[in-house]
Design a protein around this nucleic acid. Structure first.
Lengths: 198, 198
DNA sequence: TCGTTAAGATACGGCTCGTATCTTGCTAGG
DNA sequence: CCTAGCAAGATACGAGCCGTATCTTAACGA
């Protein structure tokens, strides 16, 4: 545990060093074997320092991922709802792949009892995509005249992320063919059924 | 650990006593706190006896659930595909509720690395529902003339279970309203889009 | 300069893991 | 009926990790 240098890190510098260590440890040993002791050791610090910041490894990992995952704030404008939808699911795949199937399931499992933490996890990762869907993809489609606001329902707002997540949690990946079939066989028909011209 | 009686159980009798203990322990303390030691204690036996049969708590729990969960071999014939579909999702909800959200996520997480064990888990639980969907619900619809074989795709065969599981893994339950919206806003439109008269 | 804060080290009891060892009850083959 | 073998069951072990308490000391701020 003893660090080589005599200097003592604090605040932001320390925080970043820890999060780096979390990520390194996570990448190397995986979610199941990610331990507070391992992270402390790798970061050259000690467990109390970690517990002063996070009360569990899940919270710590969520912080780490939140600081590492690229913000999902843009989806290329492909000129059609279908194209945009494929692009959105591709973004979703990239984000989830960064975390990994096992870690995602593990985090969901550890978090499933605690609605507060669950909100943080889902709010930080999934809802960003939902917002993107609603405020970018669907809005563009409305502007294009493919869609009207009243065609949308809560279920249709969740559908793309639900199907993407479901696919990923089961198989650990989302193939291009899967994206196509999700869009062409499910999402677009569901929108058309409510009157959309997509 | 010492049992009261002098008798020594063996074979099937012992196996059942252990599985009973697993279920009791699981129901009482939940998945996260389910330990080999706890089960051994409750069953009045010892860890080596458990490890001779299962190599991990997940395998043990899967055995337990497989022996306890009712077989999904029937869905009431409601006279319409819509009604049957709602009934199927209701069956799915009951089965998943028996296991619980946290346990389901936990098992999936621990099993996600090992494709073999995953097959056992999903094959024993999910695919039973998929078969039911294909061999009962869809078949009836075909007989009624609501549907034709060529309207179905692999995606449409998975869609109902995917959406049900997704809902359950996120919320820990599936409300009646959720079932309705899944059926009416997603599944049926997707079938109609391929030509079905449902 | 000096008091406050937090880093970092260490140690603790506790739990669970997975395995090894040993005795002993049960059972099947003769 | 006897005996040999097998598995049940008890126990103990080192290991790892948990979460917390305690202590020293470096860094910072007023």
């Amino acid at each position: 545990m003893k660090r080589r240098t005599a200097s003592r890190r604090r605040g932001e510098e320390l925080e970043q060093a820890i999060l780096d260590a979390v990520w390194a440890e996570f990448s190397e040993v995986g979610f199941a074997k990610l331990t507070m002791e391992g992270v402390a050791k790798r970061a050259g610090t000690s467990k109390p320092v970690l517990y002063r910041r996070w009360s569990s490894r899940v919270e710590m990992l969520i912080s780490c991922i939140a600081s590492r995952i690229p913000k999902a704030d843009a989806v290329p404008d492909t000129g059609s709802l279908r194209g945009d939808m494929v692009a959105l699911l591709t973004v979703a795949r990239e984000r989830m792949t960064l975390i990994g199937q096992t870690a995602m399931l593990g985090m969901l499992a550890e978090v499933s009892k605690d609605p507060d933490v669950r909100e943080v996890l889902l709010g930080g990762l999934a809802s960003e995509l939902v917002n993107l869907l609603y405020q970018v993809v669907y809005r563009r489609a409305i502007d294009r005249g493919e869609l009207a606001e009243e065609h949308l329902t809560p279920r249709l707002l969740r559908l793309p992320t639900d199907l993407g997540r479901s696919e990923f949690l089961l198989f650990g990946t989302i193939s291009d063919e899967a994206i196509d079939s999700i869009v062409d066989e499910v999402i677009l028909p569901a929108l058309r059924a409510r009157g959309a011209a997509v």
